[in-house]
Design a protein around this nucleic acid. Structure first.
Lengths: 192, 192
DNA sequence: GACCATACGGAACTATGATTCCGTTTGTCA
DNA sequence: TGACAAACGGAATCATAGTTCCGTATGGTC
């Protein structure tokens, strides 16, 4: 596959098993605590020792990046699915935003990543974000062609608005309702 | 003034001078680095020792809270001024949002406070936020009575949207333009 | 201008949490 | 099943940054 002759010595069975356990445990811990999650917690919840976590991921940043990367991958999937949906184009786009927001809602680490916390995480997800951008571009063009989306906004405005919604998700104030924020953001994109 | 007979032994001249220097220095450091600013830096920039910083503020949280509180006070001032402005009510409100955003823009600590980082800071500014809420309420009512603001939004939506704009301000991505985000947020409040 | 409470400076202390190290255990393969 | 490399566990280490302590300096007052 790769031109650089990657040596992949094939993991031992227990190592492969632990790799999964760590990703699963880490997802829970980072989802709950965001970037301030502790590696000891990840190890405990995953049912392995800290040393094992570090054997699989060189740093906390690297582990978090992998988790966020996988989530962004799933955004790409839901967005691509929307390309095949037959509906009013602006509503299709709005539904993608709603669907992806629901995925983000339970995960503090992803919220923080959307908000730009941590250069490594941001850069480590460049490929996924780029793919997401392409799909969004297509959805936006359809909606603008249909005349139901403002012509003076672009696909690049969507992550910016989502970043704002994520800030609301993470906020403790009871009066802040991210679903409401999202609907306002969607409305701001709607043609008048 | 106070019913609890506060003993205020009158600060020595050098202490009063240092108090100002610390607030001034801390403003710079927290504005640049947000909550992750270091007390050693605050001391150095202020031109005093760390011990002196702690003589004036018991904890880092307390210092940060005081800074944020003062900024929120200035929001109350600009918002109150707007009550006296004679103009189209929705545009008056939008201008308050623009003006206050410009004040926030240079200050990472205030951005983070708006985004709900730090329980003590949030609670320590309750009075100012409450005053701000009252003034906003009045501005919103005027705009809604004029029919230029959506009737199904409220004053409480404004800090939520501002929270989102603050997230954009703090974001490193070059494509994120908080002034653009703000205009979209304002548009989402506009009557159709 | 001497006294002394107030205030200062910054080295030392402490807590927290990421990362490393190494003795032990376990899969794999002959 | 014996050998050995791969992988594990978790105590120990290291780094960072908030906070405390105490010897020294200074403003206010008689």
């Amino acid at each position: 596959m790769s031109t650089t002759e990657e040596t992949k010595p094939a993991l031992r069975a227990d190592a492969r098993r632990n790799h999964e356990k760590i990703i699963e445990g880490a997802r829970k811990v980072f989802a709950r605590n965001g970037a301030s999650a502790q590696m000891e917690d990840v190890a405990r919840v995953s049912g392995v020792g800290v040393g094992t976590v570090y054997r699989h991921f060189p740093t906390k940043e690297a582990l978090m990046t992998e988790l966020v990367r996988r989530t962004f991958e799933s955004f790409v999937v839901t967005s691509r699915e929307a390309l095949a949906v037959d509906g009013e184009p602006f509503e299709v786009l709005a539904d993608v935003m709603r669907r992806n927001s629901e995925l983000i809602a339970g995960d503090a680490a992803v919220q923080q990543a959307m908000m730009g916390a941590g250069a490594e995480v941001w850069e480590g997800t460049a490929s996924e974000r780029q793919q997401l951008g392409q799909v969004s571009q297509e959805l936006v063009e359809r909606a603008q062609d249909a005349g139901t989306m403002r012509p003076d906004v672009g696909a690049h405005d969507i992550p910016m608005l989502m970043c704002g919604v994520c800030a609301t998700m993470g906020h403790t104030a009871k009066m802040f309702d991210w679903r409401r924020h999202l609907e306002l953001a969607i409305d701001s994109l709607r043609a008048r």
